[in-house]
Design a protein around this nucleic acid. Structure first.
Lengths: 211, 211
DNA sequence: GCAGAACGCGAGTGATTGCTCACAATACTC
DNA sequence: GAGTATTGTGAGCAATCACTCGCGTTCTGC
């Protein structure tokens, strides 16, 4: 651990350096994707970006900063993708099955983007507290939106919408996560998605929830 | 990556060396638990075990072998714990809710054992192919047992018991995993377990499964 | 066209890591 | 208690990694 903290080092002003930073971010994503976090060395990243190692350290104070930048971008993209869905749940109040289908589809799309990178980012790499807060906020927002929607849909009969919403988010997240990362050779992703919708629909439509 | 492969180096014959190996395994578990895989250095492990670094390398050819030994032991313990459950499902054919409660309880117990170690082993550390096969075999056995049970329980009305079994295993696994590792401050583990049972019960008891 | 800022370079540094090896201590065999 | 196999030791090696620094190149404003 040669360095303790710090966020950004130098701000790219010219177009040239903005391209360098861009190349570094993409290279870092690719290298982490291919080699994992620990084996994704800064020298390798610089090399892959076609940039000197010195230039890397002009814009990122250390390896973790590079990781953080990638995750932040990844999460921002996720939030951007999820935004319309959450808005639709709030404004359109779609019926149960239709809403679930959209949630699951959005989650699958989210995970299918760059599965290997996603795995490294969310399973293997260290997560600084700042990042943790960022992710928690996103998850909380999603859960709240789903809970509101559940409360407004008449078919839903669970006793505790907030808990149910957490379960919905959690289950879709982990099922699609595993679906994408350890693909099932026997059954198509669509089949899995459909069954997940069926599972959630059965649960939410039942009154079995222990109060 | 200073070494390529190899499994075991020397077999402990005297009681003395068996104790050394034991100490090394426990020390490795503790160190990986506390520092993660990458920062869990072999020197630190040897030190914690109260053993020279040379002795470590007499019984384990490299760092990964040490990891593998730990995981294998962890998985074996898991299989041992899961065995009675699977046998009970096969022989007693408990009714839906009772069976689900036992499955979820077993899974929670399995994860609660050493959560930090579990996380490092299953999320962070590299997984050699041999290990992957071992885990797949365990999951397959569990899924098959659950599927057989589902077929025999009259309340279950899903169209595809094997797919349903996979979902059951998958959902209980991931929910309990997250439950133990990222604990929910608002709700008790029991509450989560109960709700998971409710979710699975609603799903399995419904005919909503898309054929 | 020039001064200064921004940018880019990459050999090199210090620290750390996985791991070896020459040797010493202990346990069994007779 | 001699002889041998087993076990234990730890200084140190070779490799690697994150990161620095001195210097050359390109851009911008005037």
């Amino acid at each position: 651990m040669p360095r303790t903290s710090l966020r950004a080092r130098k701000h790219p002003r010219q177009a040239r350096s903005r391209e360098t930073v861009e190349a570094l971010l993409e290279a870092a994503a690719q290298v982490f994707e291919r080699h994992g976090y620990a084996a994704g060395t800064t020298n390798r990243i610089a090399e892959r970006a076609g940039v000197s190692i010195g230039s890397l350290y002009q814009y990122f104070p250390n390896k973790d900063a590079l990781l953080l930048a990638i995750v932040e971008r990844h999460v921002a993209e996720g939030a951007e993708r999820l935004g319309p869905l959450l808005a639709a749940l709030r404004d359109e109040r779609p019926p149960l099955r239709a809403g679930l289908e959209r949630i699951v589809a959005a989650m699958v799309a989210l995970h299918a983007e760059r599965p290997a990178l996603h795995r490294v980012l969310f399973e293997e790499a260290p997560r600084p507290p700042a990042l943790r807060r960022r992710l928690d906020a996103l998850a909380t927002a999603a859960t709240a939106a789903v809970a509101d929607w559940l409360r407004a849909v008449p078919e839903v009969r669970v006793a505790d919408p907030k808990l149910a919403a957490r379960l919905v988010v959690q289950v879709t997240e982990s099922v699609t996560h595993n679906l994408v990362i350890h693909a099932d050779p026997d059954r198509s992703p669509d089949r899995w998605a459909a069954e997940t919708v069926a599972l959630l629909e059965a649960y939410l439509g039942s009154a079995a929830s222990s109060g």
